[in-house]
Nucleic acid binder design. Structure first.
Lengths: 158, 158
DNA sequence: CGATATTCGTTGCACATGCAACGTTTTTCT
DNA sequence: AGAAAAACGTTGCATGTGCAACGAATATCG
């Protein structure tokens, strides 16, 4: 379907089609999924993706430090910090000092934050099911391959 | 392996693990691949990802407009425009007005740009093979699933 | 116990990004 | 043909981002 029109002059370069290049394809697929979701988050809840990720993690493990979230959801600590500040300003979470280790900031969902997530999470779960349905029986295998990429290239290779 | 510690208070929210959420996992996998490559591009050639994409497309179809590239490599036209300007400043491509339609800008690799791509493309191809080897026999199926996501969610669904 | 190193979270800064607006050129419509 | 609409590429502006530096707090070591 996506044939390559080789219209230009001949450069003598090896054949290369970025549309068949896996890193590009993965980025594109991820971007398509994220943008679909992102639009919903923004339109209905006024949330950015970093904000959503922070809330999502707190929904699972309520009570976490910035560092916890940084390692869990693959975001730089400065990104987490700023997202948390915006969420605090909106009253969705609260920051408290941790008395046992006063370097840590303890993040907790407020009642309002919990209420928002009660509306938001079903949406996310529905989207996950929609993808699973779309991919059909091979979904499990696909997911395993995604994991293989994460495991295989996350740590530095030789 | 990645069990979820449910340490915090109970919020009554549905169970949700962002680590199992496919949009997040796809983004993470794509990010890992891109960052590995991106580091190589930057360290050895001083290229950003947008710049690399523009060059990659021109390596395939030498001679293209900004709009062509925008639709081919999934980048906004402003992003393409700025990347092209930087590449022109470095002498890797040249911009010429198109005499047939003077709204268009005709982008072409310079000799220097071609030489750079002659060094760069084998690196990209090697990386692609490395991923294919890593994923093994199921790679074809995996790639088809990636395509299914691109096709299925790219156009707006109901 | 005291000095040094490390961890945590925030912030300043330079830079990349998306979006809208713009001037120019071409296409479409009456 | 002439007017209105659309397409193309660039740029201004507000905002998001990564990185390094920082102050505060804790851990480690002699």
């Amino acid at each position: 379907m996506s044939e390559i029109k080789r219209t230009g002059r001949d450069t003598g370069l090896p054949d290369f089609d970025i549309g068949q290049f896996l890193p590009y394809r993965m980025t594109l697929a991820a971007q398509i999924l994220s943008e679909t979701l992102s639009r919903a988050y923004r339109d209905r809840f006024g949330l950015s993706i970093p904000e959503w990720r922070v809330l999502a993690h707190l929904a699972t493990v309520d009570g976490a430090s910035v560092r916890d979230i940084e390692s869990r959801v693959a975001m730089e600590k400065s990104k987490v910090s700023r997202a948390a500040s915006r969420l605090e300003a909106r009253g969705l979470l609260s920051k408290q000092g941790n008395p046992e280790d006063r370097r840590l900031v303890h993040l907790t969902l407020t009642a309002e934050g919990i209420a928002l997530m009660r509306d938001l999470l079903p949406l996310a779960e529905a989207f996950q099911r929609r993808i699973e349905d779309h991919l059909g029986a091979e979904f499990q295998a696909f997911d395993a391959q995604v994991q293989a990429i994460i495991d295989g290239f996350g740590a530095k290779g030789p």
